[in-house]
Amino acid sequence: MAKEPAVPASGDDARLIERFLEMMAAEAGAARNTLLAYERDLRGASAELEGGMSEAGRDDIRSLGESWMTLARSTVARKSAALRRFYGFLAEEGLRGDDPSAALPRPSQGRPLPKTLGRGDVERLFDTIAAEVATGKPLALRLAALFELLYGSGLRATELVSLPRAAIRKGSPFLILAGKGGRERLVPISDRALAAVEAWRVHVPGDAAWLFPSGKKHLTRIRLYQIVKELAAKAGIPPDRISPHVLRHAFATHLLEGGADIRALQTLLGHADIATTQIYTHVDSARLVELVNARHPLVDEPGSAA
């Protein structure tokens, strides 16, 4: 798909867009691709408003939104989100006394729920891994280390394959990763994962830079996807139901089911926005209802008077 051409912004718009992007990078820790998307959408809106985006009123913004109605809902939602963030920034900085973004369209697109795996599926995967490890083959030990870190620590695929050889140290229950936007986060390493990594590291050349080397570099994300799907097929799980990211979702889902605090989960997953983490609450509605009924302070204790 061809990239949308960059649109020049003029006057105050150009200067304020630059300030906004600097804020997003420095304070919000936005990733490069996020910044490029904001810049593209804001410059495009500035061009449509003939360089008057920063001073546009609600009527101008409403007309702008109406001009987007032939676009996909996801595109309209993205453009609207960029402008809302921009006008919020102007208001916070005292550069505008009002915020016209209420006039922007709010297409109801419904955020897709993440794919996940049941506990039974996870158990089948690890039973299959145990059978592979029993063969004594080094690649089976690599398989165990990869899956223990994917499911047990919630690592992203890129984070996992690019782990340095010495990133995980014996006896250290965590590692610190620089994730999206350069944000650091603490990643827990279970005893199972530590043991699996130690068993695999014996077979990693001492001069290797990566924990999962492949040729002169590290294992690729594509190869990791293939490994995950190959194991799923052996475990009797349809390969289209699973990916490294699905295992990360399973990590989050099962922690929440086990009673993890959503703020702690946000930190573990490296989400900048709690709203991203809150999507996992869909999996545990039954437990939440039970929790409210059992722990609400106004619920009568068993045997108490009505």
Rank of each mutant, 00 (worst) to 15 (best):
R169I: 12
L268C: 10
L186D: 00
K229H: 12
V228M: 07
H254F: 06
P238I: 13
L255K: 08
E198H: 03
K234F: 03
V202I: 15
L224T: 12
T158R: 14
W210Y: 15
Q266W: 04
L255S: 11
A195G: 05
A209D: 14
E257N: 10
R156A: 06
R201V: 05
V161N: 01
G215E: 08
S190I: 07
A235K: 09
I227A: 03
S162M: 01
A232P: 09
L256E: 03
A264S: 15
R185S: 05
L247E: 12
I242T: 07
Q266T: 09
F251T: 09
I262L: 15
A260S: 11
L219F: 08
A167V: 03
L211Y: 07
E198C: 07
D191V: 14
A232Q: 04
L194T: 06
R241I: 03
E184I: 01
T267I: 11
G182W: 04
K170C: 00
W210R: 11
K217T: 14
A196G: 05
R165T: 00
K229C: 03
F174W: 13
T253R: 07
G182F: 06
K170W: 00
D240I: 05
A166I: 00
G236T: 13
G236D: 13
R223V: 13
K217L: 11
L224K: 10
L219C: 05
R241M: 14
L256G: 04
A199C: 02
R263C: 01
A199Y: 02
I168S: 02
R263Y: 13
H245L: 13
I222L: 12
K216D: 15
G270N: 07
V197R: 06
A166K: 10
V246N: 02
R185F: 09
F212I: 07
P164V: 00
V161E: 01
V197I: 05
E184C: 02
E159F: 10
R201M: 03
P213E: 06
P188R: 02
E257H: 13
G182H: 09
R192S: 15
L150S: 02
L265W: 14
A235H: 08
F174L: 11
A250W: 11
